[in-house]
Amino acid sequence: MIKKIFSKRDLKLPIIGGLIAAASLLSTTATAEVDINQLRQQSKIMFGTLSETMPGSENDTPAMVELGKTLFMDKRLSVNDSQSCNSCHQVGNYNGSGVDNEATSPGALPGTKGDRNSPTVWNSGFQMAQFWDGRAEDLKEQAKGPILNPVEMGMPSEEAVETKISKIAEYQQSFKHAFGKENAISYDNIAQAIAAFERTLITNDRFDDFMSGDDQAMTKSELKGLQTFINTGCSACHNGATLGGNMYQKMGLVNQYPHQEDLGRYKVTGLEKDKMMFKVPMLRDISRSAPYFHDGRVETIEQAIYDMAWYQLGQKLSTQQVDDIATFLNALEHQTH
């Protein structure tokens, strides 16, 4: 049962800027039976399938990717050898969820903790920008941030990172191999290699199989959930191949989000209009990345669905609608075979 945390007032809520209309443009009236062919066509238009390659990967080499993977897993990039990129964005042997399933992640130094939930690294290079507030343009710029962040990996400077890595014999050879020259160890190349590895982290799921023509890829319950996802307006923001990650939206568009401590993109731009604006999270593999929201306050996917419908669309979904949408989101889970 979903926890009902709002009052039972009967509200007449406006349609905000055509938000719901945009999502329902291609939708049909929900029925017990789903027209699978029509739903497939809707999905192709609204979402599309994931590309097999990520933007920027055309310049990556196997040596660069392998170096990036080693760096991504290496705790020596932190000030006290306790924290790696993988500590917060766990991918392991490509089976990890891409997150640490913590509300906010512990840092390398005792008592330190990040102020936002660690987003998944899977498919991250398909997004328009990186971090919840979009402060990094791409994966390379993003990779430079956590290493020097005092509440994450805690290294004091780029020069300190270069000096530390330069003293490791295995890296002297692997950087030369990856970048084709002597003395290739630099902070910029460290970030470039990590980004190259991250560009290989592309999920594979049954939703793409369905859109590619496999009528058996998704269950009837999942297809019903997909139709509910579209009809209720979720796809107005969670669209494109990653079902998110391609726009900023106010957290609390219709009904105010109760936690206003983090003002989101406003911290980057200083613009009044950007208060409580965050990048819309991707929904691919979302079932594995709890807890949810930028502050990690919501523990279950069902509660997240219910809350988002209220904050963003002004709708109080029924338990059945929530369950339907949650069932659909399971079809977005990464398959490792």
Rank of each mutant, 00 (worst) to 15 (best):
Q142G: 10
Q335C: 04
N80D: 15
D81I: 05
I325Q: 08
G145P: 09
F175Y: 07
S235T: 14
E333C: 03
R297G: 08
L77N: 01
D285S: 11
S97E: 12
T242C: 09
D295W: 06
N149R: 08
S289V: 15
S78L: 00
E261V: 05
D208L: 05
F179C: 04
V79E: 09
Y311S: 10
I2E: 14
D323R: 03
K273G: 15
S212K: 11
G92V: 02
P106F: 00
N123Y: 00
E222A: 11
D74W: 12
G111D: 06
P14Q: 02
N117A: 09
T112S: 14
T219E: 09
L329D: 01
F328M: 05
M153L: 12
T228I: 03
M153P: 01
Q315H: 12
E33L: 05
P150L: 03
F328V: 03
N117S: 07
M1S: 14
Q90Y: 13
M282G: 06
Q142R: 07
S7V: 07
G134M: 01
I301M: 08
Q216T: 11
G17M: 13
S289E: 13
L313P: 10
T203Y: 05
T29A: 11
G56W: 00
E102R: 10
S235L: 00
E272W: 03
L50H: 02
G68L: 07
S289Y: 00
L39M: 11
H177L: 02
E162V: 15
M251N: 14
E222G: 06
T203F: 10
K69P: 05
E159K: 10
Y257A: 06
N231F: 00
G296T: 03
V151K: 12
N117G: 08
G134E: 01
T203D: 07
D208Q: 00
M218R: 02
G314Q: 02
F175A: 11
E222Y: 05
Y306R: 12
K44H: 06
Q335G: 07
I305Y: 13
E102K: 14
I36V: 12
G68F: 04
A304D: 14
Y257G: 04
A32W: 03
N86T: 04
A304T: 10
A304K: 06
L317N: 02
Q249L: 08
A23P: 02
L77D: 08
E272D: 15
E302I: 02
S166N: 09
Y292N: 11
